[in-house]
């Protein structure tokens, strides 16, 4: 048997798992410990910081998808965050009674449609935005900046026209009000939910981008759209899907942020 044949029969290398990046938040939290006198305060602040970070992550993940993968500078991304929050008010304000009820099911019956509406509308608007505004300026950063800022201004004014200039409070469901007590540390329930939602989004994105063919196609398409098409894939459709997903994530982030800001 030749050396080549022997190599052909050998096992393929296995993927090493890199846990190091996951330790960064833990290291940062521990680094802050000496500067906070009380352990319970440290726990409360750490969870609050994580929750805030996760909300920003959910909103920014859409921006990252769109910029990092499609090389599109979307200065209108903030509009999708605002639209998501406003869409949630369309459901949560009329269903304020369900939100105040002492029933998890009634709370969920209000929250789930609100999130679905926010994510659905921002996703569909993302589709329209990509086709009408972004598609003509692919590969032209300066024009992308100008036109997406224009799009954001238009969206902002449309929101004013429909919802008025006053702030609309986005109520929290009764189930998510108040705190858990971890020893002497108070941890707000809503912040824990934000951390969990952020983690779910993070893990889902990680799995999709690294473990699915769609993820590989997105990463490959960013690098060489032409070659992906020469392999037989319709990359344009995929990019539209990515833009929709990015916009929908902004909408989800808008609901989360709106609920925080209204407390």
């Amino acid at each position: 048997m030749s050396a080549t044949d022997m190599e052909a029969g050998a096992a393929l290398p296995k993927v090493p798992v890199d846990y190091l990046p996951l330790l960064l938040p833990v290291a940062l939290a521990l680094a802050a410990l000496p500067f906070i006198p009380s352990g319970s305060t440290w726990v409360t602040l750490t969870v609050a910081g994580l929750a805030m970070g996760m909300m920003i992550f959910v909103m920014a993940s859409g921006l990252t998808l769109i910029f990092g993968l499609m090389d599109v500078l979307n200065f209108g991304h903030g509009a999708f965050i605002a639209i998501g929050a406003y869409m949630a008010t369309l459901v949560l304000v009329p269903l304020a009674g369900w939100m105040q009820a002492d029933s998890v099911w009634l709370n969920l019956a209000a929250v789930i449609p609100a999130i679905a509406l926010a994510v659905g509308v921002t996703g569909l608007l993302g589709l329209a935005f990509e086709r009408v505004v972004i598609a003509p300026v692919y590969g032209q950063h300066l024009k992308q900046i100008l036109i997406t800022m224009g799009g954001m201004i238009v969206a902002e004014q449309v929101l004013y026209a429909f919802f008025g200039p006053q702030q609309i409070p986005l109520p929290l469901p009764t189930t998510l009000r108040g705190s858990f007590m971890l020893g002497e540390a108070a941890v707000e329930k809503y912040r824990v939910v934000c951390v969990v939602v952020g983690l779910v989004v993070f893990l889902a994105m990680l799995a999709i981008l690294n473990r699915t063919k769609i993820g590989l196609l997105i990463r490959a398409g960013v690098e060489n759209t032409e070659m992906v098409e020469a392999l037989g894939y319709r990359i344009t459709r995929l990019f539209v899907g990515v833009f929709m997903a990015g916009s929908a994530l902004a909408g989800l982030g808008g609901v989360m942020w709106g609920s925080t800001a209204s407390r």
């Binding site: 393929l12 063919k213 590989l216 196609l217 990463r219 490959a220 960013v222 690098e223 060489n224 070659m227 992906v228 392999l231 894939y233």
Partner: peptide
């Protein structure tokens, strides 16, 4: 695709 591994290039 430079950012993808050899394996990922072939999977695509």
């Amino acid at each position: 695709f430079s950012d993808l591994t050899v394996k990922e290039n072939l999977i695509l």
